[in-house]
Design a protein around this nucleic acid. Structure first.
Length: 574
RNA sequence: GGGCUUGUAGCCUAGCUGGAUAGGGCGUUAGACUCCUAAUCUAAAGACCGUGGGUUCAAAUCCCACCAAGCCCGCCA
């Protein structure tokens, strides 16, 4: 609906430029939103492009355009203001059309023939997920939802790091130090494993020879001939992943597939690609086997094998990325900014192996900066971290207290259910609203804010729900609403309609640049517009009851769908 | 030392392919519930856009230098 209006604006602008003998191609005519509503709904800056051609100031050209431009029915007027050509939408016409076009899957754009293989989270299975990891999961999962909404196909993968040193240390603790996962006394199994990892690190400080034992375990597991050892590695990882999955499920984070890195050793891919890189001449044996990447403006060699012949993370990651390239059209990783160099190296390797063109965007990353605690960075090794489980528990606990102080009429079960929705929402929103390149210093009170945070958006949704329920209780059939003939949207209704109309464009643009924080911003804006409308307009029992109920219903849908992209549940009441 | 990222009101932040009065939010101050949930709304105060140069008709946005914070430069992942 909104698209059509933009098209009309571009058409008449185009015709106007022809009349002025200064035709510009239609795709060069870009539109933007004016800084405030007094200046209209749509603005064009074509005049800046025409200025050098016509040798006149943009402001004069704007006046000329307005002089000759034909005003389509959907606009009340087109004005020039300085260099801008501003379009004013006729909401008496537009509101009904727009609202009629909103159905339950508003924001779901038409299908794009593109499949994206999206890897996110992929935390090492050596202890619980902490708040550093969860930024990855939240961004990754929201990107998945955003890309799906934009019409693309997405497969999300969790890359299970079973060959790494960290995991081997846990296994060492179980096998050689007699530590039992079930004996660690933590409430969740991944926390138990984290405690073993911590203990092995402490032992290692006292007895450096443990290091050699761990190395031997890695070697033996990579050879894969010791069935009992294989089983121990697998069991340990499975247990840890069981814990992860519980946490991720609670956070509304979904993976389609878990891919084990060891598989790329077992199926021979790692050897095959290493051999190929040797053959092509980029990998050379010096002190160890090194991949030379000077041709790709990377000074640091990538070591492909340890001196003892075992593989390294980066090597296996190359094989994994080769695999992912075959699974879809686009490969997208969500990674912490500490992986920037490593990723460049992997990408260079993919180029060497002729999987992708140099500088291709088909394999790319969304990087995010770290979350640190006030007293320094997090570390599973030293146990200095806040686990996601603790974070959720605290958030839900606070939400619970908040609800109890507001609602005395709800049962304990109802409160718990709503507290979970609000608590998890607060966390997801806190991460989603920020640009990924912003470094976060974690503070409880900032993360878990129930006023003007996510809760206020959820509240707007709950309000809308309640309002519709009230209407139903009065015997109104929501399926048979129609606009009153004399309804002319007032300023509050116009603002709400305008914001609603921006949603599909927001989806396509955000998906294009692969950013989720514009969606979070939008949720806030929409909730705000809805709350203002609600405050100033009686709905049930008003002169325009039917039109307003339609407006409320559509706002509710949009709020719901926007929150859904952020993985935030929209509650029916709170 | 080299590279990448960030620096916007007391605090958090959007804007960064240059263009309209730098947009939100928290907090502060002053108001609003006999009226569909006040987790709300209204109003006010609060910003030399890190600093210094430069390019331009026009710079928060581009270029250079500097300062500050974070990250990377492993036979860790």
């Amino acid at each position: 609906m909104y698209n059509e209006i933009e098209k009309q604006a571009i058409d008449v602008l185009f015709n106007a430029t022809i009349k002025l003998d200064s035709e510009v191609s239609k795709d060069k005519i870009t539109l933007e939103f004016p800084p405030n509503h007094d200046m209209g709904d749509i603005a064009s800056t074509v005049t800046f492009q025409l200025a050098p051609i016509l040798k006149k100031s943009p402001a004069m050209i704007a006046e000329d355009i307005v002089e000759v431009i034909e005003v389509p029915k959907i606009f009340t007027k087109i004005e020039s203001k300085g260099p801008y050509v501003n379009f004013f939408i006729d909401y008496n016409i537009f509101a009904e059309g727009l609202l009629n076009s909103i159905n339950s899957d508003y924001g779901q754009l038409s299908k794009i023939d593109e499949k994206i293989v999206l890897e996110h989270t992929s935390a090492n299975p050596n202890g619980p997920l902490h708040i550093g990891h969860i930024r990855n999961s939240i961004i990754g999962d929201s990107i998945r939802r955003l890309l799906l909404s934009s019409g693309r196909q997405v497969e999300t993968q969790y890359y299970v790091n079973d060959m790494g040193r960290q995991l081997a240390m846990v296994v060492y603790g179980i096998k050689e130090l007699g530590l039992q996962i079930e004996d660690q006394g933590q409430s969740k199994i991944d926390h138990n494993i984290g405690l073993i990892y911590l203990k092995v690190n402490q032992e290692l400080e006292k007895d450096p020879s443990i290091d050699e034992g761990v190395t031997n375990l890695i070697k033996e597991y990579e050879q894969g001939t010791n069935e009992e050892l294989n089983q121990l590695f697998h069991d340990t990882i499975d247990k840890c992943l069981t814990g992860f999955k519980q946490t991720l499920k609670r956070m509304n984070v979904y993976h389609d597939k878990y891919v084990w890195e060891g598989d790329f050793i077992r199926n021979g891919d790692v050897d095959k690609y290493v051999d190929e890189m040797v053959e092509i001449g980029y990998a050379r044996m010096e002190d160890v086997l090194r991949l030379k990447l000077g041709d790709y403006q990377i000074k640091n060699d990538l070591v492909l094998r340890r001196a003892d012949g075992t593989s390294l993370y980066s090597t296996r990651d190359i094989a994994y990325h080769m695999y992912k390239c075959d699974q879809g059209d686009i490969v997208l990783d969500i990674l912490g900014s500490d992986h920037k160099l490593a990723f460049k190296q992997v990408k260079a390797a993919l180029t060497i192996l002729e999987k992708i063109e140099e500088d291709s965007d088909d394999v790319s990353v969304l990087f995010y900066e770290f979350i640190t605690l006030v007293d320094g960075s997090m570390s599973s090794r030293t146990g200095n971290f806040i686990s996601v489980d603790d974070l959720i528990d605290e958030s839900v606990k606070r939400a619970n207290i908040e609800i109890k102080s507001r609602r005395q009429d709800l049962s304990e079960d109802e409160i718990s259910e709503i507290a979970e929705i609000i608590g998890v929402g607060a966390i997801r929103y806190y991460i989603s609203r920020l640009s990924p390149e912003k470094h976060i210093k974690f503070k409880w009170d900032e993360a878990l804010n129930f006023e003007k945070g996510c809760a206020s958006i959820q509240y707007a949704h709950a309000r809308a729900s309640k309002l519709l329920q009230n209407a139903i209780d009065q015997g109104i059939n929501l399926d048979q609403l129609s606009f009153e003939d004399n309804w002319q949207p007032n300023q509050f209704e116009i603002n709400l309609v305008r914001t609603l109309s921006k949603f599909p464009k927001l989806i396509s643009e955000s998906a294009e640049i692969r950013r989720i924080h514009p969606i979070a911003n939008y949720c806030q804006e929409l909730a705000s517009d809805f709350n203002r409308f609600y405050k100033e307009n009686k709905v049930v029992g008003s002169e325009f009851e039917s039109s307003r109920l339609i407006l409320v219903e559509k706002a509710k849908i949009t709020l719901h769908n926007a929150l859904d992209i952020l993985g935030v549940t929209a509650p029916e009441r709170m």
